[in-house]
Design a binder for these strands. Structure first.
Length: 639
DNA sequence: GCAAGGTC
């Protein structure tokens, strides 16, 4: 008797491989592998006797699993042919569902995948959809199902749900197969349609208007400039403009502070700067009265005309500098910009290349905690032969931290480089581990920015597997008359992760041994006028943080939006290491123009508002069709 | 020539 065959489809080739590794006895190498119609998506076949919900009918029944994958979305949507030509209609027609229709199906380049799915489904009695656990994955799953059902209308279609690709989790998932969540599918379809219709309508409108406006001076067709609207582009532009306007409209307010310099206690020499506990005083008169009292008090009762302050407190605190969290995509983008001065778009290109050549794990992940199932020591051991940080990795493996978390006394051996399980961050996308090195790259095997990004990933990983840095802070309080001042010093006692993670500095600031009750000689006492300062223009890492916070784009797309607003000449990155973003005249005009007519499309909160409306489809509060009509109606009103 | 979302 021939085994039942079950077609299993993952979102990407790497996921298919991992899934096979988890379920197939003997791992992926024990499976039968053959090429598919598309060059990247192989087919893996193997037998299993694991129970499969609604498929295996007797205990220990052997079933053949046929695993393959797609590459992200299988379908794309576009307007029916007659509306694809820009001059074919007034763009507002694109917002009207009753006039223009949208087609959804596989684009030409996905046809090999479609053929593989249909070929493989021919002798399978069931289809199990192993796509990622997010809403986009649900939509891709539905599209895969529809392709397979075209040739196999009666095939048993099931959805696998899993929170990590481990053997236990995947076996559990096989035994508890679910069905597709059509509401989530409908939500994603709605997002796609609303984004396409609004994007196309407003892009055609804006491009046409602005072209006309400048047609006399820019007759040359090569001068063609696309002026696009997108529900992520505009809020991204809005963030840059917001900060620019905050700076432009900033009103500086003068304030006053008293700076105190005390002679260091013997045997140390020099002057120690103290800051005034009152902070800023905005009233000049009050500040000068306080200052004069201070000067008078400093001189009061001094036998030798030397001004003095009194040390009122000396206390020591333990300070801890936490080791970095495991690395997720958005954090990699921010760090690459801050520490390596690479744009987020470039770092994603590089990370993708490092991933496909096997040096690092999958680079698009939200997860910042390691599963307890992963063998971190093996990954550390892989780095131990590295010429630069191999020694650190070796020492990590030789010792292990036992306690030493939280406040309180440190264990005796804390000073030793030692392995310590990484901290758990708050995010988990249930599909991918944090970004980590998978294979050691000796110096010379990678070059330029690839080498720099790899080095960051490797050092960050080793840092996350070592211990926090510990410092001893000394806080000295002093009074001149009744006015309190404070100075702080710090000695780094245990460098911990800092030894391998040289992107972060924690420097000593010496503090001489003052004693309570002791007078100290005042070397300087000055009333200084200063003023409040506007914040700086946004850096790329600031912009990414804000986009992340406002839900503009995803970890996989944030970098593209940042690039797009530059490519469109809406904003530019100023030269310099921090590369701050400044709106260009076109970008400023777009935002000003929108706001002037009460169109809020460039507000940073707009994307989150739109997505919240779409989520009502997934939760069942509204049906898809009225929601889309509603959203498009709102766009039509703005149009 | 338009969007954003996947991924190679």
């Amino acid at each position: 008797m021939v085994n039942k065959r079950v077609l299993c489809v993952a979102e990407k080739p790497s996921a298919a491989r991992q899934l096979v590794d988890a379920v197939c006895q003997g791992g992926v190498n024990a499976s039968r592998r053959r090429p598919g119609q598309s060059q990247y998506n192989h087919v893996f076949e193997f037998e299993t006797s694991a129970p499969i919900a609604s498929i295996s009918t007797s205990p220990n029944e052997t079933v053949t699993l046929v695993f393959t994958s797609v590459t992200g979305h299988l379908f794309e949507q576009d307007f029916e042919a007659r509306y694809r030509v820009w001059s074919s209609c007034d763009p507002s027609v694109l917002l009207d569902r009753s006039v223009s229709s949208i087609q959804c199906g596989p684009p030409e380049e996905k046809m090999p995948l479609v053929r593989t799915l249909q070929d493989e489904a021919r002798d399978c009695m069931a289809l199990v959809l192993w796509l990622d656990g997010d809403s986009e994955g649900e939509k891709i799953a539905a599209d895969v199902a529809s392709v397979v059902q075209e040739t196999r209308p009666n095939i048993n279609v099931r959805r696998a749900r899993f929170s990590a690709i481990t053997t236990a989790e995947i076996l559990h998932s096989l035994a508890n197969l679910d069905v597709l969540n059509q509401r989530v599918v409908a939500m994603v379809a709605a997002r796609q349609e609303i984004d396409l219709r609004s994007g196309a309508a407003f892009t055609r409108l804006l491009t046409g208007r602005i072209q006309n406006r400048f047609s006399d001076s820019r007759a040359d067709a090569s001068e063609f400039k696309l002026v696009s609207y997108g529900p992520c582009q505009f809020p991204t532009l809005g963030l840059v403009v917001d900060r620019y306007l905050t700076i432009r409209n900033f009103i500086r307010v003068p304030f006053y502070v008293i700076d105190l310099g005390l002679a260091a206690a013997a045997p140390a020499t020099g002057v120690i700067p103290f800051t005034w506990d009152r902070g800023r005083i905005f009233d000049q008169y009050v500040a000068s009265v306080l200052y004069e009292a201070c000067v008078e008090d400093a001189m009061a009762g001094t036998p030798d005309d030397v001004p003095r302050a009194h040390v009122t407190g000396v206390r020591k605190n333990q300070r801890r500098r936490w080791k970095p969290l495991p690395l997720a995509t958005v954090e990699l983008q921010k760090e690459a910009s801050r520490k390596l001065h690479l744009s987020s778009h470039l770092v994603m290109e590089i990370a993708e290349k490092l991933y496909t050549s096997g040096f690092i794990s999958y680079p698009r992940t939200e997860t910042d905690k390691f599963s307890r199932a992963i063998d971190l020591r093996a990954l550390v051991a892989e780095q131990s032969s590295h010429a630069q940080w191999g020694h650190f990795a070796t020492r990590l493996l030789a010792n292990e931290n036992r306690g030493g978390h939280g406040p309180g006394p440190l264990p005796e051996d804390y000073d030793i480089v030692q392995f310590d399980w990484p901290r758990d961050g708050p995010h988990d996308d249930a599909a991918h581990p944090p970004i980590h090195p998978t294979k050691v790259a000796q110096p010379g095997s990678l070059s330029g920015n690839e080498a720099r990004v790899y080095e960051y990933v490797a050092r960050r990983f080793l840092a996350s597997c070592s211990v926090d840095a510990i410092g001893a802070e000394t806080v000295v309080n002093a009074k001149v008359g009744v006015e309190p001042f404070t100075a702080k010093g710090l000695i780094v006692e245990h460098r911990g992760f800092l030894d391998v993670f040289h992107y972060q500095r924690w420097a000593d600031t010496e503090m001489p041994a003052y004693r309570v009750g002791q007078p100290a000689v005042v070397r300087s006492l000055l009333l200084r006028e200063s003023s409040t300062e506007p914040p700086p223009l946004l850096s790329e890492s600031d912009l990414i943080s804000l986009m992340d916070r406002h839900g503009i784009g995803t970890d996989a797309t944030i970098a593209e939006h940042v690039k797009k607003v530059q490519d469109r000449n809406y904003v530019r990155k100023l030269p310099g290491a921090t590369g701050r973003f400044e709106p260009l005249p076109l970008g400023l005009a777009l935002v000003d123009g929108c706001e002037a007519v009460e169109v809020h499309l460039a507000r940073p909160t707009e994307r989150a508002r739109q997505e919240a409306a779409m989520k009502r489809i997934a939760s069942g509060e509204v049906a898809q069709s009225p929601m889309i009509v509603d959203a498009l109606g709102a766009y039509s009103a703005l149009y």
